[in-house]
């Protein structure tokens, strides 16, 4: 049967930084073709297609309804796959190969992560579930 795509409204202007991305404007409506846990969603708008940060999109039909998973305060063990230095105060600095606990997997691709007694945001893109093959 036909594939029904979910429509989302763009909530802030986004200027693309690479060829595979899509520039969108506040108020645009896009259809989401694929969602990745990294927070990049593949969208189409009229005849254009490309990746858009999920943080810039809200569901067209139910803007107030949260699609987020619940946090898991016990934490899920992950290994970092890249050195990362946060640019904002609430982001965590972690070297490659460290074990961290993922507490909240947010759709925008910035997960809440705990390392020892410190908690902060970390890019899902640089995390691999502990025990998963590379």
């Amino acid at each position: 049967g036909p594939i029904i795509l979910q429509s989302y409204r763009v909530i802030a202007d986004y200027e693309k930084n690479s060829k595979s991305e899509l520039s969108v404007k506040d108020g645009d409506v896009v259809d989401v073709v694929e969602k990745t846990e990294n927070g990049w969603w593949f969208c189409q708008m009229k005849n254009k297609r490309g990746w858009v940060p999920a943080a810039y999109l809200e569901p067209l039909d139910s803007p107030d309804e949260s699609e987020e998973q619940d946090p898991n305060y016990e934490g899920e063990l992950h290994i970092t796959t890249k050195d990362f230095t946060g640019e904002m105060e609430d982001e965590l600095d972690v070297k490659e190969g460290e074990t961290v606990e993922v507490i909240h997997k947010l759709l925008d691709g910035w997960w809440v992560v705990r390392r020892g007694s410190v908690t902060g945001y970390f890019p899902a893109m640089y995390l691999q579930k502990s025990g998963d093959a590379v």
Binding site: I11, A12, Y14, N17, S18, S20, E21, V33, E34, T36, N38, G39, W40, F42, W51, P53, A54, A55, Y56, M88, D108, G109, W110, Y121, P123, A124, M125, Y126
Partner: peptide
């Protein structure tokens, strides 16, 4: 076919959006 997503983390939500989410 769908191209691979960008290899960098997506930007954090812009400040005006973050305010809306709170």
């Amino acid at each position: 076919t769908i191209k691979r997503p960008p290899q960098n983390p997506p930007p954090r939500p812009p400040p005006e959006v973050r305010r809306k989410q709170v």
